[in-house]
């Protein structure tokens, strides 16, 4: 067993521990911290595989943006209702049975599967320079297209919220006028 494999196992254990802890922690903030632990462990696995660009993006985008946004939402919504006091829904038994079934299928697939053939990959295949060249020469159109589509989605979401708010304002004004007449 090489030192790389040992590191992979340690980080995989970290990722799995975080994921399992998410099940049992009650407060959403603790769940978020466990998820951050899982994401950082996955970033370490990506770095261990030589995918440094992906590891950096994992930390920057997921831990730095997505989870910070999630933590803001948790701080805004400190609701202590039934969703806080009761961790699990009535589907707990069915969900655990589904988990066992999924894990069974996974183990069965791993036991029956053939080992993957090794391909000669150049050592700098996933360096920042190679990624940047490939990205800017071949894939920049797709990225620009994705950005435009996402922008359209954000504008549409904002428009829907604005229409709904205006509708509520109009209804409130009509109700007020009705009260004044009455």
């Amino acid at each position: 067993m090489t030192i790389e494999t040992v590191f992979l196992m340690v980080f995989a254990l970290g990722a799995l521990t975080g994921a399992v802890a998410m099940f049992f922690l009650r407060h959403p903030m603790r769940v978020a911290l466990a998820l951050i632990g899982t994401m950082v462990s996955l970033a370490a696995i990506y770095a261990q595989l030589g995918m440094h660009v992906i590891a950096v993006f994992q930390v920057l985008v997921y831990v730095g943006a997505v989870m910070v946004f999630m933590i803001y939402a948790i701080m805004l919504l400190d609701v202590r209702d039934r969703s806080f006091t009761e961790r699990f829904s009535p589907l707990l038994v069915a969900g655990l049975a589904g988990l066992l079934l999924l894990l069974g299928v996974l183990v069965d697939g791993l036991l029956r599967g053939q080992p993957f053939p090794a391909v000669d990959v150049p050592p700098d295949a996933f360096s920042v320079g190679t990624f940047a060249i490939v990205f800017m020469e071949q894939f920049w159109v797709y990225f620009a297209l994705t950005a435009v589509l996402l922008l359209v989605a954000e504008i549409a979401a904002s428009a829907v919220i604005d229409i709904r708010r205006r509708g509520q304002d109009v209804a409130a004004a009509q109700a007020e006028r009705g009260n004044e007449r009455g």
Binding site: L8, V20, F23, L77, L102
Partner: peptide
């Protein structure tokens, strides 16, 4: 290593799917 990481990937997906089903909090 490849099979090991794919197994980890499958386990994370399965745990995530079951978490969506069994937890009671929308943020979680």
């Amino acid at each position: 290593d490849t099979t090991f990481l794919l197994a980890l990937s499958g386990m994370l997906f399965a745990l995530g799917l079951v978490g969506v089903i069994v937890r009671r909090n929308l943020l979680v």
